[in-house]
Simulated assay, not measured.
Amino acid sequence: MAGRQRWMTVVCVVGVGMLTTAGCDGTAEPAAAPTSAATRSVTPPVPRDLFSPRPEVVRTPQEACGGTPFRAGAVRAYTPDGPRYDGPGPHPVKLLRMESDLLGMGPELPYQWTGPRPAQLVVCEYEDETFDSRQVGTCEYLGGTVLGATARVQSARFVYRVFEARTGTLVRQFTLRGNTTPEETCPETTYAKTALYDQQVESKDLVAKIRPLVERDR
Rank of each mutant, 00 (worst) to 15 (best):
R6P: 00
W7R: 10
W7Y: 11
T9E: 08
V10D: 04
V11Q: 11
C12P: 01
V13G: 03
V16H: 06
G17I: 03
T21W: 05
C24K: 10
D25G: 15
A31S: 14
A32Y: 00
A33V: 09
P34A: 13
P34L: 08
P34Q: 09
R40V: 02
R40S: 06
T43G: 01
V46D: 03
S52A: 15
R54S: 05
G67I: 10
F70Q: 10
R71Q: 15
A72V: 10
Y78A: 03
Y78E: 00
P80K: 10
G82Q: 04
P83N: 12
Y85V: 08
D86S: 14
D86P: 01
G89A: 14
V93R: 11
R97H: 08
D101M: 05
D101K: 08
L102F: 15
M105H: 14
Q112C: 01
G115V: 08
V123W: 02
V123H: 00
V123P: 01
Y126I: 03
Y126D: 03
T138S: 11
Y141S: 14
G143E: 13
A149T: 03
A156I: 06
R157G: 01
R157V: 01
Y160G: 01
R166A: 15
T169V: 13
Q173W: 00
T181A: 09
P182R: 07
P187L: 12
T189Q: 11
Y191K: 08
K193G: 15
K193L: 08
D198G: 06
D198Y: 11
V201S: 05
E202V: 06
E202W: 14
K204D: 12
D205M: 02
A208W: 10
A208F: 08
K209N: 02
I210Y: 03
P212N: 01
E215K: 08
R218C: 07
